[in-house]
């Protein structure tokens, strides 16, 4: 049993087509897992199921041993936060301060407590000097950091990032990844949803989603040993690994070089 367990999960929207099929997944506390899949493979749907925004057709989700049901979704959401893809569509407050406060207000945190936490977590994501700014004065990356601060202030155990970097430029993206790395080091459980393998490499464990099914899962070096899996799932390998396989195919054997190429990708 992990901290978050998903068993035999099925889901469909109103149409007949099953969007998720027999999903089984177990995530331990403090783990960083990456869910990698092509556009439309069902990643966002899975994320919404985990935070109780959608209800499974079949199967169950348990968090910390408790079944996720409509009755207790409020309590489960205290444990799981989610940062969505579009920075503009999740900024609820009129100012940064209001937005970080929003979740805490819902949890009925006292005002003094809120002010302290806002300061603390805004500092944590490097936004302490922006508390009075309005969303139109912020960049996409800054808005995503505010979203993180809002979740941290609710003191969840898990944060899900649903393609949270995909609308950012490489600079803001790298910056955001640094913050996420830091959070993970402090013990937070991270679920990173992405279609970018380079971004998935930060994780301890990789889950490959393909057309609504878990196609493969395991630790990254093991999966990378099977380039065909990536191809089958309409995904790309990291460039260094591609070069590695290309060299191998060309009949080139150089132990040291291969090790280097391998390490190039897993050094994150």
């Amino acid at each position: 049993m992990g901290y978050l367990d998903i068993e035999h999960l099925y889901f469909q929207y109103s149409s007949k087509r099953m969007i998720l099929k027999d999903i089984n997944l177990s995530i331990n506390q403090g783990e960083w897992i990456a869910i990698l899949g092509h556009n439309g493979s069902g990643k966002s749907t899975l994320a919404k199921l985990i935070v109780g925004l959608l209800q499974p057709k079949e199967g169950r989700i348990t968090v910390d041993g408790v079944d996720l049901l409509p009755e207790n979704v409020y309590d489960i959401r205290k444990k799981i936060g989610i940062v969505f893809q579009n920075p503009d569509n999740q900024f609820v407050g009129v100012t940064v301060r209001d937005d970080i406060a929003f979740g805490m207000e819902n949890l009925q945190v006292s005002k003094d407590d809120m002010l302290k936490k806002i300061d603390f977590y805004a500092t944590k994501v490097g936004m302490q000097n922006f508390l009075d700014k309005e969303p139109s004065q912020l960049s996409g990356g800054q808005k995503q950091r505010i979203a993180i601060a809002g979740i941290l202030a609710m003191q969840t155990d898990i944060i899900i990032f649903d393609e949270a970097t995909s609308m950012l430029d490489p600079g803001s993206r790298a910056e955001l990844m640094e913050y996420i790395k830091e959070l993970h080091q402090e013990g937070l459980t991270i679920i990173m949803i992405t279609h970018d393998i380079e971004e998935a490499l930060y994780a301890d464990k990789l889950v490959i989603l393909k057309s609504g099914e878990i196609y493969q899962q395991g630790d990254i070096p093991t999966l990378l040993k099977h380039p065909e899996w990536f191809k089958e799932a309409y995904l790309e390998l990291p460039t260094a690994i591609q070069i590695y396989y290309d060299l191998k195919q060309a009949g080139h054997d150089n132990q040291e070089l291969e090790e280097y190429l391998w390490a190039f990708s897993s050094s994150k």
């Binding site: 609820v92 005002k111 809002g150």
Partner: peptide, 16 residues
């Protein structure tokens, strides 16, 4: 986004 941050319409909230 609001629901995932525990917003429930009509439920008591504190205010910043």
């Amino acid at each position: 986004a609001m629901e995932s941050r525990n917003f429930v319409p009509g439920r008591e909230r504190t205010r910043i």
